[in-house]
Amino acid sequence: MLLEIKNLKASVEGKPILKGLDFSLEKGQTHAIMGPNGSGKSTLANVLMGNPEYTVTDGSILWNGRDLLEMEPHERALAGLFLSYQYPVEIPGLTVGKFLKRAAESRLGGEEKLNVSAYLKEIRESMDFLEMDRKFINRYLNTGFSGGEKKRMEILQMLLFKPRLAILDETDSGLDIDALRVVSRGVNKLRNPLFSSIIITHYQRILDYVKPDRVHVLYDGKIVESGGPELVGELEKKGYEWIKRQNPREVDHEQSVHSA
């Protein structure tokens, strides 16, 4: 098992968001996690990556049998975990080129010298593949990028870093159909028996391009439904109201807190 989450509980600023989540993922699989706004999807992604703003209050996460929660964010990254952010942060002053080069170097661990020209070639090819303007390499990371440009920059990093598990947090949101097609092409390119992914989404759209092996529905901090790709169609037909009716919230007033 690549990833095994048991009874995960996590909170943000003291407010519980994940309330006992169980989830597991085999090597080579692509899983989709769907759910309405406020159900805890982004919290799960950030907890997996180790964002200090999120506090794990209970449960365990095993990564190849290792305790993931004991690992620093950069250790998780070097171990092959990758998160494509819903809202990538801007870093003015740091060019994309410098950032990618240093990131590649830290993946070599200082023992091997980076072949800069080969790497540069790979960056250029990947940018072409994602239909990105090569000039982006000298721009400041994410600074002044449009929503779609930021998402492509995330997928570019995924292609270059070749993670073992990529988590795509709402990567499809705010993308027009062309951008969605390009981003999906990037994910599909990596699909192989050693690459796994978790696609977190509110909508069905991206799953038309990236076919998931399993689909889970996250609601009120827990996985409430799991099934094959057919679950996507079912959700499409019935909408999230169906899930909400079947799973009334534990405490009523929390609903207003979440939607606020």
């Binding site: 990556m49 180790g50 964002n51 200090p52 703003e53 620093e72 964010p73 950069h74 998780r76 990254a77 070097l78 998160l83 952010y85 990538p88 942060v89 870093i91 740091l94 950032f99 240093r102 990131a103 830290s106 993946r107 990093q157 870093f161």
Partner: peptide, 19 residues
């Protein structure tokens, strides 16, 4: 910004220096 960089594989020290 610190979290973004560390989640891309940089240690805290490296990330501070980069920023």
């Amino acid at each position: 910004q610190m979290f973004y960089l560390t989640s891309r594989g940089f240690s805290t020290k490296e990330a501070r220096e980069i920023l």
